[in-house]
């Protein structure tokens, strides 16, 4: 199992191949639908330090507030990434992002963006929110909580050994595309035989 720690260099990213399993550590940031729309339309500068050579996590967590005012992630698995397809390539280029964590994979526009920006798509296990929350060692801060609401806010978190599968690499290979091609073929065979 390969270990990755943010910030990640372009060289490290280019050494990863679709199918590799990795353990990710370091500071990452959550962003989903409203956050992506905002990043593309407004390109806010306050996000740059958090995103540079780091990783975006498609996640709308359940978070509890401790008595001392700090936060704790309770359940925090990935959300479906395809909704960010219109935005992701632009976000990665604008903010120099090295990885996207989510589920379900993404399309050709993002695939091209991964190659251009030197980034990978990392697949987490959907629905495993309780387990994933255990890998979040610290919630550093939250940005735009008031404006976006808890699931949509930018949560800056520190993770340790977050288990992920590289399903789209920076060299144009996508496991999702391969699986879909095989299942399309099988579905056609089935439909023709019924």
């Amino acid at each position: 199992m390969l270990k990755l720690t943010t910030p990640i260099s372009a060289e490290t990213i280019n050494s990863l191949n679709a199918g590799d399993r990795v353990l990710l550590s370091g500071r990452i940031i959550t962003a989903r639908d409203a956050a992506h729309k905002l990043m593309v339309e407004k390109r806010p500068d306050f996000l740059r330090p958090y995103l540079k050579e780091s990783v975006i996590y498609h996640c709308g967590p359940i978070v509890s507030k401790n008595e001392d005012g700090t936060w704790k992630f309770v359940s925090a698995g990935p959300t479906t990434s395809s909704r960010e397809e219109p935005y992701e390539a632009d976000v990665m280029e604008e903010y120099n992002v090295r990885g996207i964590i989510g589920k379900g994979g993404m399309g050709q526009k993002t695939m091209d963006g991964l190659t251009k920006s030197g980034a990978v798509y990392l697949h987490a296990i959907g629905g495993s929110g309780a387990l994933t929350a255990q890998r979040v060692k610290k919630v550093e801060t939250v940005l735009m909580l008031e404006e976006l609401g808890s699931p949509e806010a930018f949560w800056v978190i520190e993770v340790e050994d977050f288990p992920l599968v590289v399903t789209m690499d920076s060299k144009g290979k996508s496991l999702h595309k391969e699986v879909a091609e095989r299942s399309d073929k099988r579905a056609k065979e089935l439909l023709a035989s019924i």
């Binding site: 996640c59 309770v74 359940s75 495993s128 288990p163």
Partner: peptide
């Protein structure tokens, strides 16, 4: 990866049950 995914799911189920945490954040 399929086997790892299902075993991770099983681990998650046990943890959620033990701590009364939502299995999935959604």
């Amino acid at each position: 990866s399929a086997s790892v995914a299902l075993n991770t799911i099983l681990e998650n189920i046990a943890l959620a049950r033990k701590n009364s945490y939502p299995m999935c954040q959604d």
